[in-house]
Write a protein that binds this DNA or RNA. Sequence first.
DNA 1: TGTATTTTATTTGTCGACAAACAAAACACA
DNA 2: TGTGTTTTGTTTGTCGACAAATAAAATACA
Lengths: 234, 234
Amino acid sequence: MTDIRPDALPERKRGSGVKMVYDILRDEILDLKLSPGSPVDEVQLAERFKMSRTPIREALVRLAGEGLIEALPNRSTMVSNIDFLNLNSFFDALTLMYRVTTRLAAQYHRPDDLAIIRGYHDDYAAAVAAQDALAMIATNAAFHSAIAEAGRNPYFTGLFRRLLDEGRRILRLYYQSYEGHMPDRFVEEHSAIIAAIAARDVEEADRIGKAHAQQIVQQVQSLFTRGDRLDLAL
Amino acid sequence: MTDIRPDALPERKRGSGVKMVYDILRDEILDLKLSPGSPVDEVQLAERFKMSRTPIREALVRLAGEGLIEALPNRSTMVSNIDFLNLNSFFDALTLMYRVTTRLAAQYHRPDDLAIIRGYHDDYAAAVAAQDALAMIATNAAFHSAIAEAGRNPYFTGLFRRLLDEGRRILRLYYQSYEGHMPDRFVEEHSAIIAAIAARDVEEADRIGKAHAQQIVQQVQSLFTRGDRLDLAL
DNA sequence: TGTATTTTATTTGTCGACAAACAAAACACA
DNA sequence: TGTGTTTTGTTTGTCGACAAATAAAATACA
């Protein structure tokens, strides 16, 4: 028999609260539902999630550890700002991680990995076909995350995930204003990446990964500079 | 007038407790004073630091975020084990970060950075001269951390710091049994790195950084395999 | 004696309350 | 009116206590 729960937030299991709050807040930050710089109030969150401040606080500490929020001592906590000054650092790191994870995937992937990667590839293609910008961002990140996973280097996958998260925020920022017609060239490039990985062609994977990264970086950069020009033109 | 405090732990300022506990535990973990796998008891720590479990808990959450401790839900928390299976991943990541941070330092360093780097270089040389293995480990990490800082890419410095931390544990593990005569070849290599950075010779910095990393990796690997052989011989 | 079950013990997860720190508002004074 | 001071308010940091979850110990039973 299934319990009938009229409550919106049913009784959680002990220990699940923190993860839930963490996941929800993380998504809201990355989707810009919580805008950068906006305050994060513990009491408010405690009321919203109907739990005490303690688990909320733990979730916030974890988010702060990943740099998603910033806590000024004794004073307000707020959603981290997007650091446009260090955008080049971001692109450098992202490009390198694209390359190295693709490379390692070509080297160390197992048969099962390819199925997973192809699954996300299909999801991405579907998102492109549907012109769903947000889904594109999400599935693209999942696709590359799966490739990184196949490379089996936890240090690289860790950094890469963080970068993809940050990219999610940056792209989301763009697609807020320009509803998206992302080129489906990326779909073909993704196919080429998969082929290189499946063929265990390390150098080719590296080469394509690099080219793909540069494509993306260039696209994002051009979007931003175009955006800047528009702003200046007003 | 200065307060006379018979207490060992004088009254802390509000908010400083967490950082203190975090710093101390972190050092103890990295120095293997807390051995991998050993349990971490919140109540015990609360008694030791004479504070409630709440700030202890926050420090532990942060340590867990960096992978230094592992918390099994509802059950014991323990110091993370050193993952010998993934040692190659570690070396791969370390080598790449050695290269890329040295490279970026050659590109983006400012005059002040060189002074800082040279300072740690001297510290390292002194540690080598004194045959102080632990000081070597620490100053070597500080030296490369400073180089990474001069490269001004927070994503790389973040990962690099984590890797250097993990390396601190691994090396410490070795030098626990074999009291150390580390080759002072590294001192010369450090000098060469500084020279390449100062000359802003990016390719040379990359080349030396790579060679240096491989030296270190090779040394550590040989130490471990030698250690394994010894263990097997018993 | 060996196995299943109950009991105990230990450790974590959550709560509500209070105190400290800081910022902004209110106030005093020239 | 402008500046320095006090007051108020809001948010965080810390505390002690209790409840849930799990492991270990004790017990019952064959």
